[in-house]
């Protein structure tokens, strides 16, 4: 494992912990899209179907369990926690996320490495992760402004994407048989979706003003 991959995993983990701590500390999930969080939980569950069949390392196995548990905890809080669920912006979070799920499932059935249960669901999870941020971006756009912690959450998610791209470049240059095209192309699509958000994040930071997204 190279330093970029590790930095990517850590910023990914930090982004999830920032969100969980924000929800826990403020007892509020205002500005957070439940649909995006449900999609991420689904991404982790379908990608880590190999948890009990293929062992890579203790690090990998522990991180997989942590990602499944933390993302499920966020969904649980937003849906079931007595106080937290009151602050959920249900009226603004109207993205049809089922269409994303179906679209990614169809794509995974067409484009995959091998036609096996695990490989199709692995490809599905990669495609779904690329577009899972869309309901969150739509919610931010509708609510007009972004509080600091939500901004930091998206910032760390973006850092994770950037580190993973550096990791793929590094692996492509140093490993003979590195050919993860499904990951790389989906990863670039995902990063492009963040690039737009990052632009406005940077503008608001530079002007020291509240983050405003164009409608």
């Amino acid at each position: 494992m190279n330093i970029f991959r590790f930095a990517g995993d850590m910023t990914h983990l930090i982004s999830i912990l920032v969100l969980l701590l924000k929800i826990y500390a403020t007892k509020s999930c205002a500005g957070i899209s439940l649909k995006t969080q449900e999609l991420y939980a689904l991404v982790f569950v379908t990608r880590y179907l190999d948890l009990f069949t293929d062992f890579i390392s203790v690090y990998n196995s522990v991180m997989k369990v942590v990602f499944i548990l933390t993302s499920s905890a966020i969904v649980w809080c937003m849906r079931r926690h007595r106080i937290v669920k009151r602050s959920y912006d249900q009226a603004l979070d109207t993205f049809r996320h089922l269409f994303l799920v179906l679209g990614c499932l169809v794509l995974a059935l067409i484009v995959h490495d091998k036609f096996t249960f695990q490989e199709v669901f692995w490809a599905f999870s990669i495609y779904l992760e690329a577009v899972a941020i869309l309901p969150q971006l739509v919610l931010l756009q509708r609510s007009g402004n972004v509080d600091n912690l939500t901004g930091q959450y998206v910032f760390f998610l973006g850092a994770y994407r950037a580190f993973y791209i550096l990791n793929w470049i590094y692996r492509y240059l140093t490993e003979q048989h590195f050919r993860l095209w499904i990951s790389c192309i989906s990863g670039l699509v995902q990063t492009a979706l963040y690039a737009d958000f990052f632009y406005y994040y940077y503008i608001s930071w530079k002007n020291n003003s509240k983050l405003q997204l164009p409608s």
Binding site: D9, D54, I56, N60, F67, D113, L180
Partner: peptide, 10 residues
């Protein structure tokens, strides 16, 4: 590692 079906990333 790095083969397509090995999935050694998270």
């Amino acid at each position: 590692g790095g083969n397509v079906s090995e999935h050694d990333e998270l």
